[in-house]
């Protein structure tokens, strides 16, 4: 009896969280005049909305842009994050504590304060409408450094000493010895960074004006608010569906890692 109630509530919850997505996909496949009355499945499937959307905006190009930007940002955050995390956790040097406090400070600093001056920097560097403008400011991430530092602390010193005796330099130790032993933290930082970068909209809206360089969420946002969807609901929903597709697909395969990664990043703050 008690169990029944439990399942009723859980199922109701699942419906509330999943149904809007199902409706979105259905609506994107329905004809324009059916959407207004659509409850579940359309009477007739059509790819018309998708065809129109592909004709109106360079969504394929935007997908490639997003892939390039998010991959570069993720790669940079992993490489630089582990270098700094290693130095902070395993090496002794003057100013180490100061650097650690700086990192903690940047984590608490609200982005609203740096938004305007960072844009001015990008203008001065000539990076408006360039990948560099989207990538370089995000190459370092305080949370990633902290997570690497934490994880590297737990790796036995013997492993590092043995590598030193074999003549490994510090970079070889980080990328040849520590990385293969740090898969969980690499996955966690990788997923959070990639996802945050992929879903970022405000910064691209500021830095990119050329349609061929826009990221996917930016292009879809401007499409939805800019009037080019000509208030056709189906076309907007098709754009939203295409935008959700890559991350949702990744989520279906690595669902457990997504949840664990996001939860552990929340815990750290």
């Amino acid at each position: 009896m008690k169990k029944t109630f439990l399942y009723i509530f859980l199922t109701a919850g699942a419906v509330i969280f999943l149904y809007p997505f199902i409706w979105m996909i259905s609506a994107s496949l329905a004809s324009e005049n059916e959407i207004g009355g659509l409850i579940f499945l359309p009477s007739d499937f059509t790819f018309n909305s998708y065809v129109q959307m592909f004709n109106k905006i360079p969504i394929g190009k935007a997908f490639v842009n997003s892939m390039i930007v998010s991959s570069c940002v993720t790669f940079g955050v992993l490489v630089f994050g582990s270098m700094v995390g290693y130095a902070l956790s395993r090496l002794e040097f003057k100013g180490r504590d100061l650097i650690f406090y700086i990192i903690i400070f940047t984590m608490t600093l609200p982005f609203q304060i740096t938004l305007i001056p960072q844009y001015i920097l990008i203008v001065r560097f000539g990076w408006v409408d360039s990948y560099a403008g989207l990538i370089v400011p995000y190459l370092m991430n305080a949370l990633a450094i902290i997570m690497f530092r934490q994880y590297f602390k737990s790796i036995p010193q013997d492993l590092i000493d043995a590598a030193r005796i074999d003549g490994c330099g510090e970079l070889r130790i980080i990328f040849g010895i520590l990385w293969p032993n740090s898969i969980p933290v690499l996955v966690t930082v990788g997923i959070i960074t990639f996802m945050t970068s992929w879903n970022e909209v405000l910064w691209p809206l500021i830095v990119i004006r050329n349609e061929n360089l826009m990221t996917m969420p930016q292009l879809v946002t401007l499409f939805a608010v800019g009037g080019r969807a000509e208030s056709q609901l189906g076309v907007k929903l098709a754009a939203a569906t295409i935008l959700a597709l890559p991350i949702v697909t990744a989520y279906l395969f690595f669902q457990k890692y997504f949840i664990q990664s996001m939860a552990s990043s929340g815990m750290k703050e």
């Binding site: 969280f17 997505f21 879809v220 946002t221 569906t241 935008l243 959700a244 991350i247 989520y251 949840i259």
Partner: peptide, 11 residues
């Protein structure tokens, strides 16, 4: 329950 968390705010 977690699905909306990973999807872009734009969607």
């Amino acid at each position: 329950f977690f699905l909306p968390v990973i999807v872009s705010g734009v969607v």
